[in-house]
Design a protein around this nucleic acid. Sequence first.
DNA 1: AGACTATCTGTCACTTAGTGACAACGGATT
DNA 2: AATCCGTTGTCACTAAGTGACAGATAGTCT
Lengths: 205, 205
Amino acid sequence: MTDDARLEIARLEVSRHAARLFWEKGFDATSGNDIAAAAGISTRTVWRYFRSKEACVEPVLKVSELRFAVLLGEWPKTESIEQYLARSVTAFVSDEAFIRDSIAAVRILAILHREPALRSAWLMACHAAEMELRGVIADRAAQSAEDFEVRLCAASITAAMRLVDEEISAAVINDGVQVSSEEATARIISAIRGAATLPICDAVT
Amino acid sequence: MTDDARLEIARLEVSRHAARLFWEKGFDATSGNDIAAAAGISTRTVWRYFRSKEACVEPVLKVSELRFAVLLGEWPKTESIEQYLARSVTAFVSDEAFIRDSIAAVRILAILHREPALRSAWLMACHAAEMELRGVIADRAAQSAEDFEVRLCAASITAAMRLVDEEISAAVINDGVQVSSEEATARIISAIRGAATLPICDAVT
DNA sequence: AGACTATCTGTCACTTAGTGACAACGGATT
DNA sequence: AATCCGTTGTCACTAAGTGACAGATAGTCT
């Protein structure tokens, strides 16, 4: 494992504690010392890992978005998005750690309206996901990741996923609505189909 | 004028100084005291106006994006986007204050790659523009601003405008490329057409 | 005009976010 | 074992950001 990857994992682990504390006590009431104590590291290391307090949640938000991009990265060219997700989402949502991170992320998204600082972290996480998605779309569209069309498509799809994530999170946490993973997947697919500016949703030749 | 509007203007004025300082000295090398001194107000007032140092640039970034949304808000239903912008952009880009703010915004966008904190401010500004755009699109599509379709369209178009803005800014400032306002408009129109998920770009009935 | 009210601003003391410098630790290499 | 190299903790420090209060400002009522 590379040093970079190990650092990413360490950051993610601290990020989980930060997300929990922000959810339990609120962003303002949580200090860098609190996060350090919860994660069992020194405060200095918290600030070495993250450039600001809000950035402490970026990793958990990022993995939730990114794993979806990674999933799409393994999407065979011969399948439509419906076909592929129908069979792959099950395995996707049965990973314990992923579920825990997802719940943490959903909780953060549900309090975005009260915590502007966390929204900026969320938008940064979406931006990271967008960068990742460029490669996936470039591959599927058989174009360069630098092409404007590809970048536009990645941005649109990321925006669609962001909207769906925010909406479902607010509904589940704030309004107590139950949303099955099939329903969530269906809404994401529909949003992606609507937003995709390149013909990547169906099988490509 | 309402109190809110006066406060917005005061904030924008401070924001212009902050943007200039961030451009001239860099984000880290500019302190809250520097911004206060440049704007001729007390440091305390800076922190009353803005929740963080990066948020100090949000207003200048926001007006650049927002004025475009406002312009689109006056777009007659009988015209296509090309027809409308062809005749309205001229008046748009002849406003002195607007030009100055645009230059300030462009400079900030051009240094995003070095200053992650400023990117989060930029994304927040785009988010504000997206919220505004919802109303415009709802009107043109004769749907509610709360409809998912409308919100998705606003998000996609905002993402498109964000990409074009970043690209043009980096080209102009970092690579010294010359971009005429016609060219910039053409690229924005093309991106909006590509990204719009509702049929709003042509005349609507 | 003058008193009343509400909002805004500056001052100052304070807390917490975030950095710089250096020493200590641990794991890999020779 | 000696050494190298990246990571962490400690500690002192700077700068971001807040709370409390008092003076200034502006609109309103009589």
